[in-house]
Amino acid sequence: MVLRLRERADLWSLLMPPTIWALHFLFCYLVAAVTCARLGGVTLTKPNPGASFASLESFQPWVIGGTAVALALIAISAWQAWRHSGFGLEDPPHDAATPEDRQRFLGYATLLLSALSFVSVIFIALPAFLILDCR
C-alpha cells in the first residue's frame, strides 16, 4: 500500500526511504545472526575456545540481494519524489501556503531523504564484504 506509486506526495511517501533503510538494516543483522548461529563453528577446544571462525561467505549473496532490492526501492522513491517536487524546475524554499508548494516541499524533502538512505544502505552492506567470519 505504501509502496504503490502515488500521484501526490504525502507523509507515507516521505517515510518510505528511511523505512526501507531501517528494514534493510534489520534484514542484514538478522541474516548475519542466523547465519552465524546455524553454521555454529564455535570451537570448544584449544587453542581458541569460544571463538567462532565460521565463514560469512554464504551470507554475502543474501546481503547483495537485499541491498539491491533496497536500493531499487529507494531509487523508485527518489524518482517519485523528483516528480512531486516539480522536476527541480522551481527553486526552494517552497514555503508558500499553497497546495503546489506543499507538494514541492514534501517531494524535495523526500528526495533528500532518499539520498541519505541510499548512502546509508550501502554503508550498512559494506561490513559483509570486509568482515569475513563470525568473530
Partner: peptide
C-alpha cells in the same frame, strides 16, 4: 572495517 579482522587474529 578492514582493520577489525586484522586486529582480531588469534594469538
Amino acid at each position: 572495517l578492514r582493520l577489525m579482522p586484522m586486529l582480531r587474529a588469534p594469538g
